[in-house]
Design a protein around this nucleic acid. Structure first.
Length: 321
DNA sequence: ATCCCAAGCATTCCAATTTC
DNA sequence: GAAATTGGAATGCTTGGGAT
């Protein structure tokens, strides 16, 4: 109740300049005493409201307070704008309300931020409904030390150097041109190009990141929504994908499924093991996924995968004697 | 230049009402 | 029932404008 009135009070002062306590009291339908108390509260909270005593006096906001009116800093404003992206609004069923709220927020932003605000929706996308791999997900905590430089590079359109650990590989440094960030439920992906080729990086696999001073090579206007869907479709139906038939111990099912792109078939064998037909991004991912399972899993086909796993095991035996 | 007055904010005290 | 919120009244201070 009171917080609501405080906001109304600031809005009134913002819209109409100087107003006496009596007028404010009438507008807000409270006593002048309450208005004075509210002014005091605002002042204590850091709102630069000041009083002119004497005739023609009243309360007013310091000139220039307009930009700080919403109390939003850069990141908070961005968060609102992201929430108001087309798909976000769709998902939360708040399209019109968000649209009008966003207009107000953009209106209240300092010009420098307002200019980039419209650009932000091209750089960030929330897709709460679909997952690139259509599989269950855990919440990921990504340290701010990694997120901050990536976010900075995405926002300011600079190149990015990341140390990335692809599944089954040791981390390596690579320089990428960021396109945007995509969040899918609790996961965050960085969409980028590397040497001109499309790349999608899962942020939880980034072990270090630094924004470089040089500008990124990025198309002027990006429909991130479209890029993301295209890339997801390509990823799911990728030409290099490998369909694998495998037996797996029920307790390790999730380990296998979580590394696969899709599960096509699943049945229980007589010995209790699960027979799964899954596809992997490529042969390397498949080999890595099955290798992780040890003797809890067994690749049935393709033969090339069985051979690769056998060679790997043989090499391990000779290594350890 | 000075005085007076009205308008308007500032502060304090107390009581009633609402909320938790 | 305690705490928070609100309202009323009294008193004081500041300011601007008009009268002298």
């Amino acid at each position: 109740m009171r917080a609501d009135r405080l906001v109304s009070l600031v809005l009134l002062l913002r819209q109409r300049g100087r107003l006496t306590a009596d007028i404010l009291a009438k507008e807000l339908e409270v006593s002048t005493r309450t208005v004075l108390r509210d002014i005091e509260a605002l002042s204590a909270a850091g709102v630069p409201v000041y009083a002119e005593r004497g005739r023609h006096g009243g309360f007013a906001l310091l000139p220039g307070f307009r930009t700080e009116l919403t109390g939003l800093n850069h990141d908070e404003a961005m968060a609102l704008l992201i929430a108001g992206s087309r798909r976000g609004a769709q998902a939360f069923g708040l399209g019109s309300a968000l649209a009008s709220a966003m207009l107000k927020v953009v209106d209240a932003l300092p010009p420098t931020i307002a200019e980039t605000a419209t650009d932000v929706t091209q750089r960030l996308l929330i897709d709460p409904e679909t997952d690139l791999l259509s599989r269950p997900l855990d919440t990921e905590d990504i340290p701010e030390s990694i997120v901050a430089p990536i976010r900075s590079a995405v926002f300011t359109g600079r190149r990015l150097r990341i140390r990335y650990a692809a599944p089954g590989r040791t981390p390596t440094w690579r320089t990428v041109d960021p396109i945007g960030l995509v969040t899918v439920r609790d996961l965050i992906y960085l969409l980028a190009t590397r040497s001109g080729a499309d790349r999608t990086y899962r942020l939880s696999r980034v072990v270090a990141a630094e924004a470089l001073p040089e500008p990124a090579r990025r198309p002027d206007r990006v429909d991130l929504d479209r890029v993301w869907r295209e890339r997801g479709t390509r990823f799911r139906s990728g030409g290099d994908q490998l369909v694998v038939s495998a037996l797996v111990h029920p307790g390790r099912r999730e380990d296998l499924v979580n590394t696969a792109v899709a599960v096509h078939a699943e049945e229980v064998e007589q010995d209790g093991r699960l027979r799964l037909e899954v596809s992997f991004q490529d042969a390397r991912h498949a080999e890595w996924a099955l290798w992780q399972l040890g003797t809890d899993g067994e690749a049935l086909s393709p033969q090339s995968l069985r051979t690769a796993l056998r060679d790997r095991a043989t090499a391990m035996i000779s290594h350890y004697g």
